[in-house]
Simulated scan of single mutants.
Amino acid sequence: MAKGLPIMDTFSNQGLKVDRICSRCGDANETTLHLFLECAESNIMWRLSLVRLDTTLFSFSNFYDWCVDMIYKCKVAHSWETVMMIIWKIWGMRSSWVFEKKKIDPMADCSKAMAFLDNVGDIIMTASMSISIECSPLEAEAQAVLFGLTLAYDVGLRRLEVESDCLQLVKMLQGIVQEKYASQLIVFDALSLTSILESCSFAFCLRLFNKVAHLIAKSSMTNELRVLMEDCTLDVLPAILGDKDNM
């Protein structure tokens, strides 16, 4: 891959007269190592990803050596697949800019939100935070479920019934289907977390009956984690009361 990718350094080494400078950051030649690790745009993607890597801390002479080192370090199940997904995303961002002049902001926000209710519909907790990474709608939904499960565990909730209006995601969480996308890796993380709960089930609900989560998501479009215990914002309260009446 290091010598075969159609990047400026490869073209230059083949004798073509091209500008070798990285078109995204303009700070260095576009080598494979720079494209995927050293470029400031790529570093943001790595730091916001599931693996939380700061690629400025690495010191490798080429991208191949870094890959070999990462394969050795990836001991957790599906972690290397996650790394490859991020590399593919970086390549897609680079291609969008080079061929379409479309700059994809790695900090583009997509909010995730959860409403935690007890068995009679009273609020236990509401929470929201933006997803600061370019991702598909299915990935965003999966991130929201993982986000909610993590928070639920942190506050001591051990018996959960999780509802989502994304049928494809529910089927993945129930083990009915598997996808060859980054969303499946997030689902694996979510299911791993459920193994330490007393009980956890997943069910589909129509979007009409999932207004609370969407209202909470709209109210949080910053990177700050926002958690309210036994409370919610005033714009969300009518929807919660309406759902409670319909229980």
Rank of each mutant, 00 (worst) to 15 (best):
A2I: 11
M8V: 08
S12T: 12
N13L: 13
Q14D: 10
K17H: 04
D19M: 11
R20L: 00
I21N: 11
C22F: 10
R24C: 07
R24L: 12
R24Q: 06
G26T: 13
D27A: 13
T32P: 07
H34F: 01
H34R: 01
F36Q: 13
F36A: 11
F36K: 13
E41Q: 10
W46D: 05
W46G: 11
R47H: 03
R47M: 09
L48K: 15
S49N: 11
R52A: 06
S59V: 09
F60L: 04
F60P: 04
S61V: 13
S61F: 05
S61I: 12
D65N: 15
V68Q: 07
M70G: 03
Y72Q: 10
C74E: 13
A77T: 06
H78L: 04
S79T: 10
S79I: 01
W80F: 14
M85N: 12
I87W: 06
I87E: 05
W88A: 12
I90A: 03
I90C: 03
W91M: 12
W91R: 15
M93C: 09
W97M: 10
V98P: 00
F99H: 14
K101M: 03
I104M: 14
P106N: 08
M107K: 14
A108S: 09
M114A: 07
A115I: 15
F116N: 01
L117Q: 14
N119K: 15
I123P: 00
I123H: 01
T126C: 13
S132I: 01
I133A: 13
S136W: 04
S136F: 04
P137D: 02
E139V: 14
A142N: 09
L146G: 09
L146T: 08
T150G: 12
L157M: 03
L157N: 01
L157V: 00
L157R: 02
R158C: 08
L160H: 03
L160W: 03
E163Q: 14
E163A: 09
S164I: 07
Q168S: 12
L169H: 15
M172E: 04
E179M: 15
Q184V: 06
V187L: 04
V187Q: 05
L191V: 03
S192F: 01
S199T: 05
L208G: 09
F209N: 08
K211T: 05
I216F: 04
I216G: 07
I216M: 11
I216N: 06
A217K: 00
S219E: 05
S219A: 07
M221R: 12
N223A: 06
E224K: 15
L225Y: 03
L225I: 10
V227S: 04
M229F: 15
E230F: 08
D231P: 08
C232E: 05
L234T: 05
L234N: 04
L234R: 05
V236M: 01
L237Q: 07
I240D: 00
K244Q: 14
N246L: 14
M247F: 07
M247K: 02
